[in-house]
Amino acid sequence: MAMADEPIVSIRDLYKLYRQGEIDVTALDNVSIDITRGEFVVLMGPSGSGKSTLLHIIAGVDRATRGKVLVQGINVANLTESELADWRNQNVGFVFQSFNLIPVLSAFENVELPLLLTQLNRRQRRQQAQAALELVGLSDRAHHRPDQLSGGQQQRVAIARALVTDPVLIVADEPTGNLDAKSAADVLSLLKGLTEQADKTVLMVTHDPKAASFGTRSLHLEKGEIVAG
């Protein structure tokens, strides 16, 4: 299709300034990038380079000081707080370093949680949550609580939760940071598989070069600027 190479994320002249006491800190400085559908983009760089900030702005969790952030043609910066919450629910799946599952809910309920904000009925929600758990290979652990699962399993539940609303973009902030090598490889393979088989776009922050090798493109940031990629 002609639209296939249209960027799914298009960033132009992005600035992000933080105020730290009396000093303005530039977290992102004139960043411009395009990400197309199905890409597995890895953001790398030293601590404080701005990679997590960039990820948060693209995912609609943080706001830029200046510049344009278009995701599927929508300027995220123009959305109100409540529109942004809805937009995140429908368009972005989140995977965190510490999994961030709700400890009192079962794996199944954690996966079903974002669907509560959609128009789906109970039966449809259950079907979709079940399918997402099957995709990550954890349908037999559906009724386990997070503390009854290993780190790797918890992260796979988190990926199922990120996938369940069928978002166009999955953002992962150090998803393997708390995992052993085997579990990390499983999680990264899963994310890579999503880009290859489900045509999802994955944006991942990592320090780990091994993890970065799973990506289709790496962007290196330093002091808020993209220096390579």
Partner: peptide, 13 residues
Amino acid sequence: REIGTLRVLGFSR
């Protein structure tokens, strides 16, 4: 952190 996660998932204030 749980509250932050819920907000990220789309739950409103």
